[in-house]
Amino acid sequence: MVGSDRRTGFSRRRQAGVFLGYVLAVAGVVVGAALLILSTFNPPLFSALRMSVATATTPVASGVSGVGQAIMSVPRAIGTYFFVHSENARLKRELAASRALLTRARTINYDNRRLRALLQVRDRAEAPVLTARLVASTASSTRRFALLNAGRFHGVRPGMPVRGPDGLVGRVVETGPNAARVLLVVDPASVVPVRRTRDGLPAIVAGRGDGAVDIRSVNTTEVQFGRGDLFVTSGTGGIYPPGIPVARVVAAGRDTVLGRTVAVPDTFDFALVERAFMPLPPPPPPLAIAPPTQ
């Protein structure tokens, strides 16, 4: 025979390999059956054996796990490098744009202060009267009031604005010796003159009685309101100081849109009571009536 037959039956080495495989398989079955019988009839001994095997194999498993994590970290590190590089470039671009905006804001602020000096206009920034606790509010009624635990004895007077950490809450309408009643911005009787922060558009924030407000344009029609537009007090009317956040537009619309107040009285305990921005002058004294001459 010219060629040699390489099949398993004609090769002693392959026969020995197949026989060894059979022996290992049978041995594995026997060992598995023995472990199963041992775990069933002698659980403590099986538990000790299992822990001994785990103790012996833990260092090897830890080394293999470390090598695997090291290998897996290579593509992650490469991806992180490229991500950090692109993120760094993006942050540099944003920083350059922010510097330009900051320079523009500083220029506008300088011009504003210079014009105010020329017009002899001064800002009214008086110290607040006090900080009081909001002890109650009418959230389930169509009339929306809150109660302060401070009154006339603490210097609180009707007409004083009340604000929270986020924005305007309302104004004081009634005072007692140790308490004051606050008309909330969401009350139907509340009307607050405001302006839009992005362009100074004048508007009115009127309460609806259901926890929301209406934002209405003033003296103009076909005014477009965008979602998220922020409105702050304008100072018109002399009650509220300018610049206090009042409400945001919920949905875009024209002329009159739905808004939500920035400050929610139910979410905080304390409020700041301030003096009216331009308090009304006291009434003139009554004219003395001369007695009739005889």
Rank of each mutant, 00 (worst) to 15 (best):
P161L: 06
L118I: 15
L130D: 04
A132W: 12
P158C: 11
E126D: 12
R122Q: 09
I108N: 07
L201V: 05
V205C: 03
I108M: 03
L183W: 02
D111F: 10
A150I: 04
M160T: 06
V185D: 10
L184W: 04
A189C: 13
P188R: 06
V162M: 09
A180F: 02
V173N: 00
R171T: 12
R198G: 15
K92H: 06
G170S: 01
R133A: 04
R208I: 08
A89Y: 12
G170C: 04
N112C: 11
S141I: 12
V173D: 00
P177C: 10
M160G: 08
Y110L: 14
A125G: 03
I215L: 01
A189W: 10
V186T: 09
V162W: 01
V192G: 04
L168H: 00
A189N: 14
G159P: 08
V218S: 06
L201G: 07
A97P: 05
L201P: 06
L118D: 09
A179I: 08
F153N: 02
V185E: 05
L130P: 00
P165F: 10
S137N: 10
L168T: 04
D166Y: 12
R99M: 06
R196V: 11
N149V: 11
R104I: 12
A100P: 02
V191T: 02
P128W: 07
V172G: 01
D123Q: 13
L201N: 02
V191Q: 06
R198Q: 15
R216P: 09
R133F: 00
S190R: 14
R163Y: 07
V205Y: 01
L91C: 11
A89P: 06
T107V: 07
G151V: 00
A179D: 08
F153G: 04
R106H: 13
R122S: 15
L118S: 12
G200N: 06
M160F: 11
R116L: 15
R196T: 07
T103K: 14
A150N: 05
S141E: 10
R114W: 05
T131V: 15
V162G: 06
R114Y: 10
R144F: 07
V191P: 01
L148V: 06
E126S: 12
T175G: 11
D123N: 08
R124A: 13
R133L: 07
P161V: 01
L102N: 06
A136D: 14
G155V: 09
G167E: 01
G200K: 03
A146V: 06
Q120I: 07
F153M: 09
S217A: 12
T197V: 13
A96C: 05
P128E: 01
R90M: 13
